[in-house]
Design a protein around this nucleic acid. Structure first.
Lengths: 142, 142
DNA sequence: CTACACCCTCTAGCTGCTGTAGGTTCAAGT
DNA sequence: ACTTGAACCTACAGCAGCTAGAGGGTGTAG
């Protein structure tokens, strides 16, 4: 039986985050000692590992909730899990495209800065005037 | 003189966002009509454009605050503006590297899913077992 | 039986907005 | 001059996904 601290250490999660996951129903309410402290078993360890790993792959908590649900029902067809992963992949690809455009723009800004007074700074100039941009970058979304 | 709505339209910002920027001191308190409505001039239009453009390039509000400060003092050397931009570039590059690793992992997951039962789903399997990952992806940070 | 590391709940804060409620003002049309 | 209706005002709550702190209780090793 693991204390919350041990579970945290084993999964690379913060204690508060585990309690938060419990609060939003992502982790089950665990057993408690007489004094009210949480104790976890291997099931919970697996579940939290799944959650952490999914987070590391960038899945939103809602998506993880769905994935966990699917994982709990081994006999259903796996189209849905597949669809969630594909959606996530699409999102990652969209973000990549955006970030690549940003990198280009930032590189250009930085390269053109000749190190004079801020009055002549290309960095500030570019920020002042959108028309100097080569690429469109309308959305901010992460 | 622009109303807040017109300023919003011209810069592609929401009205509430402008008021928010004012609240956190990023935009100045503008003049008001007798009835208490905000009225903006060209200075504010420029400032907000600068902010929006910087946001589109992914700068944090604090970085933008600094950049605006620098922009207001044209005779100081521009090393700092340059440093801020370089920092932002570094951050973008770090995020890109991370996202590329995620893309690889997600692609592999999706490709290996054969469309059977969730019990055999590679997507879920991979999420369950971190050791199947080819790449490390420890941090989640945006 | 005492230290002391760990646990508990509750609440507030972070970034960067966005939305809603409930009320007022402005400008155009009659 | 008066009415309409869009746009404005303030104030506050909420989003994701945690994180930090206060103020107190528990568990266990020596």
């Amino acid at each position: 039986m693991l204390t919350i601290g041990n579970l945290a250490r084993r999964t690379g999660t913060k204690v508060q985050t585990i309690r938060y996951y419990e609060q939003i129903g992502l982790m089950p309410e665990p057993g408690r000692t007489g004094g009210g402290q949480r104790r976890y078993g291997p099931t919970e360890l697996d579940r939290l590992s799944f959650i952490r790993h999914s987070r590391q792959l960038g899945f939103a908590l809602d998506a993880i909730r769905e994935l966990l649900n699917l994982s709990d029902h081994p006999d259903t067809p796996c189209d849905e899990a597949d669809a969630i992963a594909r959606r996530q992949l699409k999102q990652v690809e969209r973000r990549l495209a955006r970030l690549e455009a940003l990198r280009t723009e930032l590189r250009r800004m930085v390269q053109e800065c000749s190190g004079g007074r801020t009055a002549d700074c290309r960095v500030l100039e570019v920020l002042r005037d959108h028309s100097e941009c080569l690429t469109e970058h309308e959305e901010i979304g992460a």
